[in-house]
Amino acid sequence: MARWPLLGGFAVVVLGAGWFLTRPMPLPDDALAGLTPDPQNGAIVFAAAGCASCHTAEDGPDDLLTGGKRFASPFGTFIAPNISSDPVHGIGGWSDLELASAIVTGVSNDGSHLYPAFPYTSYTKANLQDVVDLIAHMRTLPASDVPSAPHEIGFPFNQRITLGPWKALYTSDEWVLASADTPQLERGRYLTEALGHCAECHTPRDALGGLQKDRWMAGAANPSGEGRIPNITAGALTWSEAAIAEYLKSGFTPDFDSAGGEMVAVIKNTSRLTDEDRAAIAAYLKAIPAISNL
């Protein structure tokens, strides 16, 4: 009989330790010390990180981050929040440190975990200079007073505490392409794995929603249920590097079909990068392992 209280006590200790180890861990207070923001570079980071693709309204202006777009997933529907400069409904009232923590650690300014529909699992690889530049740029964008809508997700996923263990399993600051031995490849890796978060759609996910890194960029089911997100490794994408770079600039394929679906919003962003940056992304896609379609 005496075993049950003992077991119960043990369970409390294990759960407590689990909570403690996976508790929300924002950036340390001095993380941004000494960094001077450059809003001009911030505009490039903003495009490269694709912020507007998710946080603008359907058919809304490109710079009004009013939120409201819906993202279906096996766990429920996530609704992009207002991250405009509005002090009440947007992020105008957040400090730089709070914003940087949200972006690279997935912790909100109220200390809770954010859902990884916000791709902080990619942004965690961003360098903090780029992050403060980005924040400075976001503060120059117009305000929207539209309140953010709550996500539509059921139990147990609506318990943000469950995100702690998830983050422990799936967040890593290690590059998937371990060696990038030219400056171009290094830049391409940074743009693709960190800012561009391309893998969030182009890599399949396991049952818990984590990316399957052994099938990196090898194509995935479309979360909207419609068609597939294509394999963009050399195992399926046979375009030249120049053709990939051109696609990211104009949206035209080598045979003059055009990008469609979600990729149109991505091209809007990549068209704002330099030719060198687009070439770097193309070089990166040729450098990652070629994986055949299943």
Binding site: R228, G251, S258, A259, G260, G261, E262, V264
Partner: peptide
């Protein structure tokens, strides 16, 4: 030429499904 490409993309964004 740029706006022509954007027009192609704009329609394909909303009205064409991805490949299976």
């Amino acid at each position: 030429f740029g706006p022509v490409g954007q027009s192609c993309g704009s329609c394909h964004e909303s009205y064409r499904a991805p490949r299976q």
